[in-house]
Write a protein that binds this DNA or RNA. Sequence first.
RNA 1: GCGAGCGUGGCGGAACUGGCAGACGCGCUAGAUUUAGGUUCUAGUACCCUUAGUGGUGUGGAGGUUCGACUCCUCUCGCUCGCACCA
Length: 850
Amino acid sequence: MCDKKGVYNFNEIEKKWQDFWQENKTFKANDDSDKPKYYVLDMFPYPSGQGLHVGHPEGYTASDIVARYKRMKGFNVLHPIGWDAFGLPAEQYAIQTGTHPAETTKNNIDNMRKQIKSLGFSYDWDREINTTDPKYFKWTQWIFLKFFNSYFDEEQQKARPIDELVIPKGLSDQGKAEYIDDNRLAYEAEVAVNWCPELGTVLANEEVINGLSERGDHPVIRKPMRQWMLRITKYSERLLDGLDEVDWTDSIKKLQHDWIGKSTGAEVDFALDGFDEKIRVFTTRADTLFGATYMVMAPEHPLVDKITADSQKQAVEEYRRTASRKSDLDRTDLAKEKTGIATGAYAVNPVNGQKIPVWISDYVLISYGTGAIMAVPAHDDRDFEFANKFGLEIIQVVEPPSQQDKDAVAKGQLCFSGNGRAINSGKFNDLGTAEFKEKIASWLEENDLGKKAVNYKLRDWLFSRQRYWGEPFPLMHQKNGSIIPLTEDQLPLALPLVKDYKPAGSGEPPLSNAPDWVNVTLPDGSKAKRELNTMPQWAGSCWYYLRYIDPNNAEIFCDSEKEKYWMNVDLYIGGAEHAVLHLLYSRFWHKFLYDYGYVSTPEPFQKLINQGMILGTDGQKMSKSRGNVVNPDKVIADYGADSMRLYEMFMGPLEASKPWNMHGVEGVHRFLQRFWRVVIDEETGALSQSVQDVDADDETLRLLHKTIKKVGDDVENFGFNTAISAMMIFVNHLVKMQVKPKSAIEKFVLILAPFAPHIAEDIWQKLGCQTTLAYEPWPGYDPQFVKEAQFELAVQIKGKIKDKIVVDADATEEQIKEIALSSEKVIAAMGGKEPKKVIVIKSRLVNIVV
RNA sequence: GCGAGCGUGGCGGAACUGGCAGACGCGCUAGAUUUAGGUUCUAGUACCCUUAGUGGUGUGGAGGUUCGACUCCUCUCGCUCGCACCA
């Protein structure tokens, strides 16, 4: 084998073409082109020390096939890649070894870039970006400052400069400043965070598992800390509406829809017996007001202190202390029984003047609605459970439609939360649920007791992290507490060098270890301190797709003419794990930039595809501990990048999870090898003698055209596995032929090229073509050849196949019927009976009913 | 608990809009080439039965609609993934 000159030497071929593409900048996207544009984007990777795993190339291969296909279809294609390079692992490594995260990151990027290049993806490498590059994060900081300097105009439903905010009259200077700060889209707030005393740091929700830290299993508690927040909730409605405009799967849309969690209902004020204050509640079931038998406030509710009776003070205090120590996870653990304590205070039900007790319980969340509820135990499962536990009154006010439920609910044995007919509700009796809601809302409004209201589950975005390896906030704090943002010419604000990457024990972030950087003298001689928090990893990925459009612009994050040409992203491929957060955050930033006219489209990503997970050979998720991780470098070394790409696509549908199988790689490798041998003489490396300039026979021509159609259609629909299967069928046909028509092979090479570009380029060259095939037009097909000349007609009697007859494709229904009925086998099978009904499906089958 | 998705040979998977289930690949069996293994090539391969047929059964299970169901409807079982007290 080794002495033959012309064997399929994939290592050599792949290196040769990767070098060629790089030297010739084959895939450089042109900003100034008459061609229609196509922007195909991959979710950029975090450059980890582990390097690439086989999951990465799945999405990247799919997008690369589309990119290459679209180029051949005459599109000007933008297909970029970069690095989402801020993040915790490099920082942890720095804590352990003292290596600067920038160095670790650079090494990891160099390694992964090499790996990615070895797969032959058609990226425009001149547009490579890196979120940790100061030239990049300058603009992340710049966008943050825009948020800081903006407010949300409710009337226009859009962001506007903070200077244009109308400030209420009669405020003191301090009051004005506070009013402004309260309206900024980036604001500071004291919020409860996951604090891990053992690690001395704050953790993200995802890093807390069952109340313990993911790393090291240390206890995590809730602790209020000053944090930066982004007011994403102002965009709830627009983020919801925008989902109608994009071409995403229903399941992803639903995920985002539910995450935003819009619910419409009413706010109702309950007077407090003996106090001037009122308790305001939010409810979606104002029609059950007559059944409200008690109230519950969140333990953190500001009224609790005021209204608690002296006799309950101690118990209430203790309950609040316990609740505050619980993590969110503990609090939401359904397995736990409901807890709570009465405050000793009473509220008055506005519809009937009934005095009802006020309790506190941690099943009511301070962060949703008004932080207090009216409890209707007969018609709310949670209230039902609570009332039963503490012996509170249950009054039925809705009659269920089903007789069975009716009795159980009446006896107080069952809670019914569906719609029904109103009872025990005074003048509202007999109303249906929907109608009741309307009527009671108007009644509340007329009597100044409440109004219609909308609530969202979506919370403002906690945007600061107590970490080193992130974008510094471009802000300074003065002694008097006021905040001075940096000006645009002061950006980027780079990270300082520190000796110690650990957070200070007090919870001060690692940046406090760089006093020279932290302490600033302002032009007027006064002192200020820089913000010590950094931004979360999501920040850089919120807008990276815009930077690819204009990666080196020093004046603006993206030139608006170029933005208008390239946006929006036509196809976005990435993992489903980002279905909510990344995609929601970047849509939010995009809409914000849209408000200022920096981007021209309301949504960034038109079409979204989530590739499925690649599992280990054992069908389990790949992990180091299971020892089932497949190394892509090894696969490429053994079988080549083309085989790797082909196998990743051949495994199954792109969006499905599927297990890896090394024999499968061998299978597609054999396919490439077989094709190679069809065309190339293995002894000499020249074109095989059997490839000749002859006309293709009818069968070959039909198969070729059918294959061209099938592969093109499948690429358009992301059915890469079936496209490959069609190409295998074609090659199997070629193998059988003594003389192979060169013209057919030329066309076939072109459709293979997006999938296995190296071998295709090489064969293209051996066929005598001088230059790269990357911009050769995608071959067309002739519809007349796609149809078969004849087909095999299946003849069924009562749905069972009795005969198969070859029939001309242009036979009429009558002719087909006749042919079928005159078949000997059919006549025999009918046994002399007369056909009752004959169903003819053209070009498929005939079904005879007797 | 709620929501979404999925169940097809030994395995990964195909099957257009209700029209021949199992394309393509893996694996396996037999044969050819080879000193042998591997490679390559040829033939076969859903299951069951028998005298190998013009046979029976088959798309998680049970019903239904239809001339005809992997496909549509109802119920049910199993798996996977989200969400998880949002009033």
